[in-house]
């Protein structure tokens, strides 16, 4: 199989018409190809998340990773940008939706696009993946251990986000959820509550909770990395996107 790809920094049009930085990884094949928007974790638009974008491209997906901290810290290193975003209380929900909408439009506008776009996010990006999927017309979504889809941040937190459970009825696409049994944000009880609501609303979904894994078990650069959970999780992600994003 011809497996050449390109990965490069691009500008896309985000929320409010803002030009924001993004990392685009695309197979050099004519297509038609599905597209994936990758939403980075709270530590930002970092090397690990760029690796994820390239992983999807290698597997045949046009992929774009918007830098959600573009506005707070243009040109800054990912850790400095994440620190600046943290100090301001994180990414507003409305802006996130606008940025993912812009990323999805970018993917659909590629000549190799098959018109289908999915979204995947990790950590805070897991919640944002769910938020995008209840706010935008998408074809598949993956929530990797996103906190505060159910429940609210602890009292005193500068993070101004509310729960999204009541938005479940608006979910526009099938949802895959991957969680760690040892995680507290989200807790297994919160994951169960979300799954019950998905069932109640008749939404196509598949949830997996891995024993012996906690938050961020996909992250190869952290002590939280759990190879067994991550390997199984990746297989499920590619099965999911293969089912719903293929031409």
């Amino acid at each position: 199989m011809y497996d050449a790809m390109i990965a490069e920094t691009v500008q896309i049009t985000g929320h409010g018409g803002d030009a924001i930085e993004a990392y685009s990884a695309r197979p050099l094949r004519p297509g038609p190809l599905g597209g994936v928007v990758v939403i980075h974790h709270m530590p930002g638009y970092d090397e690990w998340t760029k690796e994820i974008a390239r992983k999807f491209a290698v597997s045949g997906y046009n992929t774009v990773l918007p830098n959600l901290y573009s506005r707070e810290a243009p040109g800054a290193s990912p850790d400095d940008a994440a620190a600046a975003a943290r100090a301001r209380g994180g990414v507003p929900d409305g802006r996130l939706v606008g940025d993912v909408a812009g990323a999805a439009a970018y993917l659909r506008g590629l000549t190799s696009s098959n018109g289908r776009v999915g979204v995947i996010g990790y950590c805070s990006g897991g919640r944002q993946s769910f938020l995008a999927a209840v706010s935008l017309p998408l074809d598949a979504a993956v929530d990797c251990y996103g906190a505060f889809v159910v429940g609210t941040p602890p009292e005193g937190s500068p993070l101004k986000v509310g729960p999204l459970l009541d938005r479940t009825k608006d979910l526009s696409c099938p949802l895959l959820g991957l969680f760690g049994a040892d995680d507290r944000y989200p807790s297994p009880e919160q994951v169960t509550e979300l799954e019950q609501e998905l069932k109640a609303q008749g939404k196509t979904h598949e949830f997996h909770t891995y024993e012996g894994a906690g938050h961020a078990f996909f992250n190869t650069g952290r002590p939280a990395y759990r190879p067994e959970a991550a390997l199984d999780g990746w297989q499920r992600v590619f099965t999911w996107f293969g089912r719903y994003l293929a031409a």
């Binding site: 974790h41 994180g90 941040p153 937190s157 993070l159 944000y185 938050h215």
Partner: peptide, 9 residues
């Protein structure tokens, strides 16, 4: 924790 729980001064 990923909570943005932050003391600023």
């Amino acid at each position: 924790m990923c909570t943005y729980l932050t003391e600023k001064l």
